[in-house]
Amino acid sequence: MKYTLIAWMRDKPGVLSRVSGMMRRRNFNIDSLQVGHTESPGISRMTFVVDGNERMVDQVIKQLRKLVDVTRVEDISEQPIVAREMALIRVSTNADNRSEIVQMVNIYRGEIVDVAMDSMIVQIVGAQDRVDSLIDLLSNFGISEMVRTGPVAMARGRTERTARRSSAVWRAQANGRDATATERFKTGGV
């Protein structure tokens, strides 16, 4: 299963290589990783998509939290979230198909951001499946170049959250039942 994690970290030199180095050394599989600034100066935010099982993802979270520069980690996989990717796609065009492409891009609420005689650049921002399907369609016309980000994500409907974890999951297991999603969320794995 794919898990979406968010990590906040101090914007220190080398922090990216610390995170990626740890992931490599611990043999974790990252599907995608996005870094950017946040509302707080000096704090960067990473969105990871990790492929694995629950136990492995728990371990990723715990190892991330151990890094001194990482201030907070959340697993938002089971939360209602907004996740967006962006792609820039250069499509080959000619006089015959140009308007068809524009129509399609409009349906997908994409944008044409550059036009040349024999090609144009399409920009799309959206959830992964929407980006996927536009790319699919455009590939019929011939994609000559493409760049695509991984998702950046945010949980819906909460303005503030506590990142503190308790031992809810373990307590549940000790009582002979599986932890609920909320408990798992609260603990961020442990």
Binding site: R55, Q59, Q63, K66, S167, W170, Q173, A174, V190
Partner: peptide, 17 residues
């Protein structure tokens, strides 16, 4: 003490972190 050691190799029934 180190949370990352709990459940890494052996998943305990009662983790006392």
């Amino acid at each position: 003490l180190d949370r990352a050691e709990v459940g890494k190799n052996v998943v305990p029934d009662v983790p006392v972190i």
